[in-house]
Structure formats: C-alpha cells, structure tokens
Design a protein around this nucleic acid. Sequence first.
DNA 1: CACAATTCAGTTGTGCACAATCTTTCTCTC
DNA 2: GAGAGAAAGATTGTGCACAACTGAATTGTG
Lengths: 148, 148
Amino acid sequence: MTTTSATDALEPMLCFAVYSAQRQIGQIYRELLAPWGLSYTQYLVLIALWTDGGLAVGRLGELLGLDSGTLSPLLKRLEARGVLTRVRSATDERVVTVSLTDAGRRLRDELADVPRCFGERLGITQQFADGLREQLKALSEHAAPGKD
Amino acid sequence: MTTTSATDALEPMLCFAVYSAQRQIGQIYRELLAPWGLSYTQYLVLIALWTDGGLAVGRLGELLGLDSGTLSPLLKRLEARGVLTRVRSATDERVVTVSLTDAGRRLRDELADVPRCFGERLGITQQFADGLREQLKALSEHAAPGKD
DNA sequence: CACAATTCAGTTGTGCACAATCTTTCTCTC
DNA sequence: GAGAGAAAGATTGTGCACAACTGAATTGTG
C-alpha cells in the first residue's frame, strides 16, 4: 500500500497550494462576473477606479502590481466597452489618465453583491479569511525583491 | 487626512492577497527556472512525472487541476524539447501516455536545489509554510464545486 | 450486432502575465 | 536651449488558463 503517487509530491508544496487556490478563486469570480462579461483583473481595475477616480495607468499598475503590457490592452477593452475613458494628460503628455464613465460608475452598484457572494461561495469565517490574508501578506513581504 | 485610496479597497480582499502572492511566487520560480527555460507549470508536470512515470494526459490533468486545453500544447512543447514522449496507448487509442525521456529524468537531479532555493527566497519557516498550506487546502476544499 | 452516449485528447479563440523593445515626452545638466 | 538620460505608456511575442468545440475511440444498451 501507500505507493508513492504524484499527489504526494505536489501536495506538500506551498507554491502548489497557492497556485491551486488562486485558480479556484479565479473560477468562482469567473462565474460571479460572467453576467457582466468581466474578468477578475478587469474587476480589480474597477475596484481601484471606484475608489480613486482618474488614475494614471502607471499608478494603477502600482496598485495592482501589473505593468503596461498587461494593463494597456485590458484598459483598451474596457474603454471599447464604454466603461472607462483613457485621456492623455494635458500637463504631461506621457501620462494617460483612466476615468470611469457613468456606465462604469453604475457597475459599482450592480456588482455590489459580488464580495458577499464570493464569501458565501468560499464558506469560511471572516476570522479565517483575515488570518489567511495576513499570512499571505507576510509571505508577499518576505518574497518582495527588496530592491537593493 | 487618511484620504481613502484604492489601496484600502484592495488590501482587505483575501482574493487579492492570494492573487498577489501567486504572482510573486511565479516570479521567483521564473527566475529559478530561467536557466532551464522552464515555466512553473512545466516544472509541476515534471514533478508529477518524476514520481509517477507514464501518466495519461487525463490523469496528469487531474493531479494538477488542468484540462487538455492547457496540457496538450504544454506537453507538445516539452516533447519538442526532448524532455518527454507522448505515446498513444495500444489498448485504448483515446489515451495518450506521457513518459519522461532520459533527458527528462536527468532534470530531476539538475533541479534538485530548486525547492531549497525557493524556500530561501521566501525566507519563512517550515512551520509557517505548513500552516499556510493547510489553510489554503481548507480554503480549496470549501471552494470546491462539490459536484452535485 | 447496431448505434447512442460517453470518454479522451486535441484545437480554436479569448484574455491575462510578463519580458523585451519602441516611441514619445519630459527633465536635467551643461 | 541643446542633447543625454529617464520616464510613461504602447507594442510584440511567448506561454498559461479556460471555455467551447471537434474527432476519434470506446462503452453500454437494446
């Protein structure tokens, strides 16, 4: 018995646990956001913009940890959908400022239930979620490049 | 003061913590695996095959939680690199069995240090890693679709 | 046996993530 | 103010993840 299976090799790896959890979470959000045709990353961008209107692309990238290679096409798609506008700054022509349209602001109300639905789908207590989040934050801080 | 910034909206979200952690982990593996030109997912496939030689594509997918849409091209690339072979089963022509070549088995030794290097880069204790892994596992089990 | 349903892998299409590169604009220094 | 360097965003190219579909092989049922 207990023939060594590949499961035994993968299961003890922290990285695999994070990788799997992230993909399951992505799956839940995919279902929750499907009615609006939004991806998880697009949802994160909206959250940022609901709080801070008029963000530069670079600032948005800092907040989400994404570069222009990811954000540029993503923002273009959201603009094409009429959710936001991309306007080149008058004072610094290099900067593009991203702002929500009325439709984009309306999404805030329409998507108001998403966090609650996500919590229900996970079925964990707030304490558990907060504890896990704190530990992941600590992990991220350790892993951070620590710019020499 | 304390003008509400988008950071305050993103930081309390567990999903964002997992998302960020996963991408940081991916970054570390990208650097560690760069000398071999392997992606993280390719590395996971190798781990599975080092333990269980001769896996069907479907079984590999079960282990990693990936479908053929992801695995087929990935395995094709690894086959082109001479790391593994894909052979259609004689007893059931639908099944393709994936096996390591000698070169693929040699990678096991060459990559033996990767887990240790990863642990060092994270700079956390084994206890912390294990605790986190257990919690993520619990999260995944809660999140699992629970096939009705 | 026939044939409907299922299974397995592959393919297609979309979007994200990231490295590398490019262009434009700005800034700094002389 | 001219030119070197930096900064901001876009573009290109690669690979992963996943939905949807295709085609071939197998299984189950009558």
